[in-house]
Amino acid sequence: MESNVKLGEVQLEMTGDVKTTEDLKVLLRWGWGAETTNKMSFKPSEELKVGDGIKVTIEKVVVIPDPVEEKVEETPGEAVEEQEAVAGTEGTVESADNSEPVTECECTCTCEGTEEVEKAAADTENTAEASGETKTA
């Protein structure tokens, strides 16, 4: 991920024409004229004429490392220990959930589940009665 920090903005006026086929060099100079960056040049998307006003925005590009990737880059031993710790916690939670009876849950699924169980029991009884009737008949 990238984050841009605006360092500055300047407005300048062209003193010469520039065609779209020409390589326009951008220089960041310091002191008596020392260049502070490696070469930057580009072909302008539009022709520039003398007197054109140009706005130049200078930004610092900061690369923010992805936290997930950063963890992977850590020493493998530590990463494994962390994963094991997380897995252990998850296991405890799951076992706690499983130990509780389903009927105590207050969500809708439980009610449906209870109904289903009741329906199934009723069906079994009906079937038994029916089979009994058949036998007697």
């Binding site: 360092l7 951008v26 960041l28 004429k49 006003g53 706005k55 925005t57 930004e59 590009v61």
Partner: peptide, 15 residues
């Protein structure tokens, strides 16, 4: 080593 980005925009045309 810091990366810098420079954007140029034409904001006005010569009369």
């Amino acid at each position: 080593g810091d990366k810098v980005r420079i954007t140029l925009e034409k904001v006005s045309e010569a009369p």
